[in-house]
Simulated assay, not measured.
Amino acid sequence: MSDKSPKPQEPETDVHDDPDEPAFDWMKPRTSGGSSAASAPAGASSPSSDSDTSAPIQPESRADRKAAEAADAEPEPPLFADASASNPLASNPSSGQPAHYSEPLPTSALQVRPPEDEVARRNAEREQAAKVKPIGPRIFQVLLAVFYPVILLVLAVRAVTSPLFLWVEYNRPGFPGDGYGFSTDDRMTYGSYAVDYLSNWSGPRYLGGLVHEDGAKLFKDTEVSHMADVKLVILSSFGAGLLLIILSIIAILYLRKRSQGGVRRGLFAGSIVTLVIIIGLAVLAVLSWQTFFTEFHRIFFASGTWTFSLEDTLIRLFPGQFWVDAGIVIGALVFLAATVTFILTWPTRRRRGAGAKSSAVDDSEKEESFEDTPEDEAVRR
């Protein structure tokens, strides 16, 4: 390109050469009272004069345009304007204009703290409720104390009605022999049949079918009938003892979970009751064994069904000394078990302190659960 070549002409960008062009009205200085219309010639009609009321006026600067855009982007007024205007908490105190409507918080009721007397009354009710002990653990403690002596008695009777006790009795020194011909082996054999019949589910034929070497019946019909009555009493007592054991286990599990030291207190009371009962029965037996034995049989058996002659098989197998020894063994076993339980559950200072400490820990946990958290205090304030 030489210096003589013509230079390209720049486009005309001066808006002052064409003041009537409406496309450049926004670049002209804005004056009050419709300055854009006044700047036009008097005889010329401005195209924008007819649309002043409909077309928005362009802002002068970039900041003004941003402000105008922000004003256009404001959300519409809330539907519940009357509710927000009537709520003093929903207005902006700095601007004096009502804010948008909002639902109350779920904890708005906690912002108002109750009066001091109401707080004191509630605390007193909580303390009173904490001091009142539930009745459930007390009931189970009483049941455990009542069941315990019966369970010990049933277990002791079960220990006596066994072939082992028969063997010890027939082989111990001083046990009276049979004057009608039964040897120790005969007694052990026939006596084992009688004891086994008391704990099995066989009928009266189990004993009624036994015979001597000469073919005669071993037990008379009256003896078999009495043994059937004894079997009914024994099996009933064993069933009741098993049921009481199950209930006692349930009571122990409940007390271990709900009452600290409840098992110990129940067994301690039961051991005292057992000792009182067994000592009282032992005194009656020592004072008059025959009267005690007779009254015991009258309680469970009909009169005339439990008396036999010295020649009958039951008397030859189980003489009077056998029942005396059986009573001593039953009383000794129950007394020993109750004494051990009494010693192990004695409320010593250490055991009472452990129980009181656990109760204090439980009470402190309850009080901490009732105390207000810092968040609750902040909400109230």
Rank of each mutant, 00 (worst) to 15 (best):
D3V: 04
P6I: 12
Q9F: 00
E10P: 01
E21I: 00
R30K: 14
T31F: 13
S46W: 12
S49A: 15
P56L: 10
A68V: 02
D82V: 07
S84Y: 02
P88N: 02
S94H: 07
L105A: 15
A109V: 04
E118K: 12
A120Y: 01
A124P: 01
K131R: 14
I135L: 13
P137Q: 09
R138D: 10
F140C: 08
A145K: 01
A145W: 03
I151N: 07
V154I: 15
S162M: 05
P163I: 04
P176H: 06
G181A: 07
A194I: 01
D196M: 01
L198R: 06
G203R: 01
R205H: 05
Y206R: 11
G209C: 03
H212F: 06
D214F: 00
F219P: 12
K220E: 08
M227K: 11
F238C: 08
L242W: 13
L243W: 08
I245Y: 03
S259V: 00
G261Y: 01
G266H: 03
I279R: 12
G280E: 02
L281Q: 05
S288E: 12
T291E: 10
F296P: 02
H297I: 03
R298Y: 07
A302W: 09
G304Y: 04
G304A: 11
L314K: 05
L317V: 06
Q321W: 08
F322R: 10
A332T: 14
F335M: 15
V340I: 14
I343Y: 13
I343P: 00
R349T: 03
E375C: 00
D376N: 06
V379D: 13
